[in-house]
């Protein structure tokens, strides 16, 4: 079958990109290898590990389970857009550093994207709620405890900053 191409235009971390893509190009591959935003990681390509989690219009989704063509006209956020322009870490990133919430760091971008969205929706979560929110992201290194602690601390820091 002839490859079938689509012109797409999308915004990633506020920057507009226009590209032609083959229908079957996964959004994860598109971000990583076409836009060279390689911070979004790929661990399974079947939706389970969560490493590829990004935000589409603010909601965390698996970029390995979307086609690049489907991102046409959408607003995406990836880990590269979390820290501010001056390089200051997002409170969730900072808390992960402070609490040793990452080891190999491969799962980390997906966790950051999942949890920044979660904490926006639930700024004062219980530990159990944090664990539930995290359960769609596998980490093989940390045993999660320090990630959970980081999220509780980040939530608190963000609440403090907001008030």
């Amino acid at each position: 079958m002839q490859p079938d191409h689509h012109d797409i235009e999308l915004k990633v971390n506020g920057t507009t990109h226009r590209r032609g893509v083959e229908s079957r190009m996964l959004l994860s591959d598109f971000l990583r290898h076409e836009l060279l935003l390689a911070g979004t990681h790929v661990g399974c390509e079947h939706g389970v590990c969560g490493a590829c989690t990004i935000l589409v219009n603010g909601a965390p989704v698996r970029s390995c389970l979307m086609l690049a063509a489907q991102a046409n006209g959408q607003q995406l956020s990836t880990v590269e857009g979390l820290a501010n322009d001056t390089g200051e870490l997002h409170p969730v990133q900072q808390a992960m550093h402070d609490h040793h919430g990452l080891q190999c760091g491969y799962c980390t971008p997906g966790i950051l994207m999942t949890m920044t969205a979660f904490l926006k929706e639930n700024p004062a979560p219980s530990e159990e709620e944090v664990r539930e929110a995290l359960s769609g992201n596998l980490c093989r290194c940390t045993g999660y405890q320090n990630i959970v602690d980081a999220m509780m601390a980040a939530a608190q820091a963000m609440r403090a900053a907001a008030s």
């Binding site: 935003l37 990836t78 880990v79 590269e80 870490l89 990133q93 990452l102 760091g105 950051l112």
Partner: peptide
């Protein structure tokens, strides 16, 4: 090593 890993 964290900073690099945290910022992708």
């Amino acid at each position: 090593e964290d900073k690099k890993l945290l910022t992708g």
